[in-house]
Simulated scan of single mutants.
Amino acid sequence: MAEYRSSSHTVYDIKYHFVWITKYRYKILRKNVAFRLRELLQQGCDARNIKILKGSIGVDHVHMLLSCPTNLAPSQIMQYLKGRSSKLLQDEFPELRKRYWGQHMWGRGYFCGTVGEVDEETIRNYIENQGKEEDNFKIEEQ
Rank of each mutant, 00 (worst) to 15 (best):
Q90Y: 05
P69D: 06
S56P: 00
Y110V: 05
G113H: 13
P74L: 06
T70G: 12
M105N: 02
R84E: 00
R124Y: 10
E95M: 11
G102F: 07
Q76E: 14
Q76N: 10
E39S: 14
T114K: 09
L88A: 03
G55Y: 07
K54L: 09
E120W: 10
H61A: 04
Q79I: 01
G116H: 11
F111S: 13
K132I: 11
I52G: 06
N129T: 01
N136D: 12
E95K: 11
E133F: 01
Y100A: 07
Q130C: 09
K54R: 14
E121D: 12
G107E: 08
G107C: 11
R99E: 11
L53F: 12
N136E: 11
S67A: 11
W101T: 04
G107A: 15
E92V: 01
S85P: 04
K132P: 03
W101S: 08
G44L: 07
G55D: 15
N125S: 12
G116P: 06
I52Q: 04
C112S: 14
K51Q: 13
F93S: 07
E120K: 13
L88N: 03
G83F: 03
Q103S: 10
M105A: 02
P69Q: 08
K51F: 06
M105Y: 04
N71F: 05
V59R: 15
P69G: 09
L88D: 02
E120N: 12
M105S: 03
K82T: 00
I50A: 01
G102Q: 12
L41N: 01
Y126V: 08
T114H: 11
G58Y: 05
P74Y: 03
K51P: 00
T122L: 09
G44H: 12
Q130M: 15
S56F: 14
S75W: 07
N49F: 00
H63Y: 07
F93E: 02
N129M: 10
R108F: 07
G109M: 08
R99K: 15
D60W: 08
L41T: 01
W101I: 03
Q130S: 12
Q90C: 04
L53I: 15
L53G: 06
G113S: 13
L96A: 10
I50W: 01
K138W: 09
E95S: 11
H63K: 12
N71I: 04
R97V: 00
Q90S: 06
H63M: 06
V118K: 15
K87H: 06
H63W: 05
Q79R: 15
L72Q: 09
